[in-house]
Amino acid sequence: MSEPVHSPGTDPGAAAAVAGIETVACIGAGVIGGGWVAYFLARGYRVRAWDPAPDAHTKLRRTIDAAWPALTELGLAPGADPDALEMAPTAADAVDGAGFVQESAPEDLDLKRALLAELAAATGDDVVVASSTSGYPMSDMATAAADPSRLVVGHPFNPPYLIPLVEVVGGRDTAPWAVSRAAAFYRHVGKSVIEMDRELPGFIANRLQEAIWREALHMVAQGEATVEQIDLSITDGPGLRWPVHGPCLTFHLAGGEGGMGHMLDHFGPSLKSPWTRLEAPELTGRLRDDMVAGAHASAGGRDMATLVAERDRAIIAVTRAVAAAREAGHA
């Protein structure tokens, strides 16, 4: 198991430090980078972008134009301007004067190492450089940087202008204040942040996504289910519950009044059932106790009846909203 790389929330002045940021640099303007550009513009920032592709500006404008109606519907920040964008000739020019840097280059480790080293050298000692990497630990990406202390992972989800989650974690040589400041900045711009305690390849959400994806591929390969059946099994099944409580609190409710403890004691043996191609961990006493304690902490004092009512209201709302969106799309 990896060692903790920082303690979340170690910079009490992080919120104040990010409040004065006016310009954000976006390095890489592909699908993810372009989504970040659109989001930062919608939050009222000036954005300097750099991408080596000769048609990067044209593609970026298309991304912004396509995203702007949704961002407008969500609510623009005062002064938000889709034209508050400058394309810089070099990465160093893009980060000059920027208060925060979001790197979204392709998932190539050597490229990431060289680019992050360049960005770290070109920015001030109070500017955080965050990488949108979807899987590499920062400890692996920061090896070429003379000063890796301000390099963090800020992993978004596609499209970054709509999906709120960002997973934030530093590397072995990242300063704790840089992680806290990155998390504070993302919260300041309206993101939902997981400030991770330790590095984990693929982070949290991607590992969970990958588990479902691998099992889906196995089922299709073995002729056990079709693509349509697999998608419907999530969209009209457990996927409706997850926006409300996520998989852990969902199983907490599955235990009834006994909660997570009863669910694990009753269904624990089924973990060894050959339902998936993934090997289940041993359900030790410590793992059981950690899951029970975690479920109670996640419930935040809400009793089972309150959680059930919350889930039911939200599922009804999500179901109606999805149905309305589909109906509008067919109109």
Rank of each mutant, 00 (worst) to 15 (best):
R113S: 06
P176Y: 08
R61F: 05
L217Q: 07
G246I: 08
A17V: 04
A309G: 07
A38I: 06
R302S: 06
R46Q: 11
D11P: 05
E73S: 12
L151T: 04
E22G: 11
S139Q: 09
Q209R: 13
R207P: 01
A325R: 15
S192W: 12
D289R: 14
L271M: 14
V179H: 08
G239A: 09
T284W: 13
P89Y: 11
L208Y: 12
A25S: 08
S2H: 12
H57N: 07
E215M: 07
D231N: 11
G154T: 01
R113F: 09
T72L: 07
G300S: 12
A80I: 06
L253C: 08
V152W: 04
V318R: 06
A216H: 08
I212W: 11
A331D: 02
D290W: 15
G135A: 11
R214P: 00
H262V: 03
A184G: 01
P238H: 14
Y136E: 02
E86L: 11
M141L: 15
S131K: 13
R286L: 12
T90E: 04
G124V: 10
S298A: 15
P156A: 04
S134Q: 04
A92W: 05
L232I: 04
A323P: 02
I194Q: 02
P52N: 14
R311Q: 15
S2V: 11
Y39F: 15
A175R: 06
E199M: 01
E73F: 01
R320G: 00
A91T: 01
F40K: 03
K191R: 14
T123H: 10
G99A: 08
A305R: 15
L74F: 10
A70S: 07
K112Q: 09
A328S: 05
R288L: 05
V166P: 01
G301N: 12
G20K: 14
F157L: 13
A80H: 12
A184T: 00
A105H: 05
E327I: 00
S149T: 13
V166S: 00
A221G: 13
A225R: 12
R187N: 01
Y186N: 02
A293L: 11
S131Y: 09
A19K: 10
I234T: 10
D147I: 10
M196Q: 10
T174M: 11
V292A: 05
P156M: 05
I21C: 01
L200Q: 08
T319I: 04
E257T: 04
D55Y: 04
I204E: 04
M87S: 05
M291L: 15
W50N: 03
V153E: 03
E73L: 11
P159A: 06
E107L: 09
L116S: 08
T123M: 10
G301W: 14
H188C: 00
T235I: 12
D108Y: 07
I32V: 11
A130K: 05
E210C: 07
I316V: 15
T143C: 09
G34N: 01
A80D: 06
A331R: 13
E257K: 12
R288E: 03
P201E: 12
Y161I: 00
P148C: 14
R62M: 06
G20A: 09
